[in-house]
């Protein structure tokens, strides 16, 4: 196996099709990065929401028992 390009600029040029090749890879990897970002942070967001709800209910329960 042998590299098909003589230099980095040759590689970036992609035989004259650089714009199209890098545009397609750019869009593909940026969309994947956004998807992966949202996917990895979702667990934290979900847990935060549940924790907030749980704490609110705890406070309500305390308030109720304090009144009685």
């Amino acid at each position: 196996m042998q590299a098909q390009f003589q230099s980095v600029s040759d590689f970036l040029n992609m035989g004259g099709y650089g714009f199209y090749v890098w545009l397609s890879y750019g869009v593909a990897y940026v969309s994947l990065a956004i998807l992966i970002g949202f996917t990895l942070t979702r667990k934290g967001r979900v847990l935060k929401e549940i924790a907030a709800k749980a704490k609110r209910e705890q406070r309500l329960a305390q308030h109720r028992s304090a009144k009685e």
Binding site: Q4, M14, G15, Y25
Partner: peptide
């Protein structure tokens, strides 16, 4: 990097 260039489509085929 290593796959050969296409004889018809040149390097655009790498998409």
């Amino acid at each position: 990097v290593f796959s050969p260039t296409d004889y018809q489509q040149g390097d655009s085929y790498r998409i």
